[in-house]
Design a protein around this nucleic acid. Structure first.
Length: 259
DNA sequence: ATGGTTGCTTAGCAA
């Protein structure tokens, strides 16, 4: 079975050299990317292809943008929620590869609790829940992964008191994520690691990374056909180090081979 | 301490 990964690269252009270097070395076979900040035309398909990956892209100028990469062919690509809402923000892409239904998401940040962007985040999470219910059953092999902009519990923040008022830790956001997970997902990093931590995001500001002020807001969720084979899930923390890192580190999950 | 940094776009927004 493939190893799967998610990474918010915070601009595929600004991250190009680091990203291609990471991709050429990674053990991941399926990679979901967020915050591309480019249109499909500007996506580096050729460089990605040269290191052995197919790609499916849902791009957008300046903001957002998501992709699914795979070492095997990608089919059944769906860009967006596939509902009746007119939403120009490129935040979700779904596809099949390795016989798995992969759903890559970049959940809205929400800015501050109660703001217009917060309302959009809450509504967006409800749309995601509906989409999953409409398209999949818990007995299907589904991987739901990406930047959720939600730390599910206080064990997912190094300084929970400091972040308690933030959109990343708000109880309503957590409840809406829980409603999605209740579809039949397991949180693979939490299956294999007791909290607190590990963390996946550290603010560029306030020396958050050297101070260890991280949050776990990037997740890999899997339905039981996949989760039953899960043997390891971890954060590639080294990718947050060094020159010009993304503010997010990649998250990976490994599975035992099929029978 | 309402600060600080990064990216896109070029003054202000988003995160």
């Amino acid at each position: 079975m493939p190893t799967i990964a998610t990474w918010n690269v915070n601009s595929i252009k600004a991250r190009h050299d680091r990203f291609i270097s990471w991709l050429s070395d990674t053990e991941a076979d399926i990679v979901c990317l967020q915050e591309l900040k480019v249109t499909e035309e500007a996506f580096p398909n050729d460089a990605i292809s040269e290191v052995g990956f197919h790609s499916a892209v849902y791009g957008q100028k300046t903001w957002n943008g998501v992709a699914i990469l795979s070492r095997e062919p990608i089919t059944d690509v769906v860009r967006g929620m596939d509902d009746d809402v007119d939403d120009p923000q490129a935040r979700v892409i779904s596809a099949r590869t390795y016989g798995i239904n992969v759903v890559g998401v970049y959940v809205p940040n929400g800015k501050s609790v109660g703001s217009d962007k917060w309302s959009y985040k809450m509504h967006w999470l409800e749309r995601l829940r509906s989409m999953l219910l409409n398209r999949f059953a818990p007995s299907d092999p589904v991987a739901l992964l990406g930047d959720f902009n939600i730390a599910p519990t206080d064990d997912d923040a190094a300084n929970p008191a400091k972040w308690s008022e933030s959109v990343l830790c708000d109880p309503e956001g957590r409840a809406r994520l829980e409603a999605i997970v209740d579809f039949g997902f397991l949180d693979l990093v939490r299956v294999h690691n007791d909290g607190p931590g590990p963390y996946t995001w550290w603010d560029y500001r306030r020396l958050a990374f050297p101070k260890g002020d991280g949050l776990r807001i990037d997740h890999i969720f899997a339905t039981t056909p996949l989760a039953n084979r899960s043997i390891r899930a971890w954060v590639d923390r080294d990718e947050r180090k060094g020159s010009k890192p993304s503010d997010h580190a990649p998250v990976l999950a490994e599975f035992s081979p099929a029978d």
